[in-house]
Nucleic acid binder design. Structure first.
Lengths: 221, 221
DNA sequence: GTAATATGTTAGATTGGTCTAACAAAATTA
DNA sequence: TAATTTTGTTAGACCAATCTAACATATTAC
């Protein structure tokens, strides 16, 4: 009923909308690396199917049905990432591309089983919340996370999630032994470039650029 | 480079050829439930790509390259089935449809990991051999299996594999607690319909129709 | 050995998903 | 506000994968 291609558009839309509040044909086009006219006609198709609200020159929206569909794909993606890390021993930087494919598998039983074997996890290996079977996200605490880059000297926080993690960022964090759950203390902030010197775990004084700090979501103590 | 659709044609061809020795457009068409003209043009495409040998009105063949490709897809399918049964707790009758989808995942690391976690199995949950990474099958013993239906009264054999298992057959075997590795003794054969009365495990006298016995591959004692 | 049937092929249409080129509207800048 | 740039839309082409209808060749039956 809904093709893999359509699923990819829905997911991208959902991602853009949850970050920026609304989506444009242009952004979707860039994110998917698909030319605008193609995106445009796909939006009309998804509107026909009742998944997207499309009006010429207006921002794109998802219908409730579209939101649910998208969330269920995200659910499959994040459950898969968790499974790959927890049950198969992959690193958190290795799982995205595999999950990107497995998220399209049509088999409720398969994902039920994963969920069960994982003990019904609430977050994926990068700390992002996993939508439930109805497409809802229990994100009470998640939405209260703040960026490390918004913290001040002397703050002590817990590293809870990575936002929009790229493989390179994750590999960088691996190399610094900085993982979810670490208690981070902000030692100092360099006024010139906003880089931070922090301590955590065994590390006394690690320097993190502002670009890195901007991606790390933390919970204040 | 090679699409999922093309993979499905290759796999079906491989299956038909390994059973019957050669394949026709008609058989492929029936097996895939795709009309003959479509199959015909796909054969030409796969011939262009050097995977199939196609000559008008001649039986279809796979090139060495085609055989290897097909075997690697079969490998992914059978490894997946084994993983689903051994590591996720699915029944052998539940795994075919899921494996049918996962076999198309493009990620050598994913299947390497499965293989490793399974301890490099040689057969799938139905007893079919798993091709190795180069597409070869170590089938020394497998090819010497015989059908239970070819056994005689008094023979004692070991149940090694199910050929062309349908879900219904597997469920039937489940219901009789007949599983791979069982030692089966042929008590009697009914001349009228060739049905067999056998004993194995805790079962003293189970009646198996000729249709069932024809699907059970066994190793003579 | 011809007729009938089964199998295989060609031609042409359709749909999904993509593109480029050209044009239109909105937003930004001067 | 007018000009320029960015964004969005329309039109039309292309390829993969499917189909039906019509025709061609093989095989089987009589």
């Amino acid at each position: 009923m809904i093709s893999q291609t359509e699923e990819n558009y829905l997911k991208a839309l959902w991602n853009i909308i949850s970050n920026k509040g609304e989506a444009s044909v242009n952004e979707l086009s860039k994110q998917l690396e698909i030319k605008m006219p193609t995106v445009n006609s796909m939006m009309k198709r998804l509107a026909e199917k009742g998944l997207v609200i499309y009006e010429s020159y207006k921002p794109l929206k998802l219908t409730d049905k579209g939101k649910k569909q998208a969330a269920l794909i995200i659910r499959k993606h994040r459950l898969t990432e968790m499974y790959l890390v927890e049950k198969m021993g992959f690193g958190w930087e290795e799982v995205h591309d595999i999950a990107e494919q497995i998220e399209h598998i049509q088999s409720p039983a398969f994902f039920e089983k994963m969920d069960e074997l994982l003990g019904f996890p609430k977050v994926d290996p990068h700390g992002s919340p996993i939508p439930d079977k109805t497409g809802k996200i229990e994100a009470e605490q998640y939405i209260r996370y703040i960026k490390l880059s918004d913290c001040r000297e002397g703050d002590t926080v817990t590293f809870m999630a990575v936002s929009h993690s790229s493989d390179d960022l994750l590999k960088f964090l691996n190399s610094r032994e900085l993982s979810l759950g670490s208690k981070i203390k902000v030692r100092s902030i360099e006024p010139f470039d906003d880089s931070m010197t922090v301590s955590y775990g065994g590390r006394k004084a690690e320097m993190l650029s502002n670009k890195v700090c901007d991606k790390l979501l933390v919970r204040p103590a």
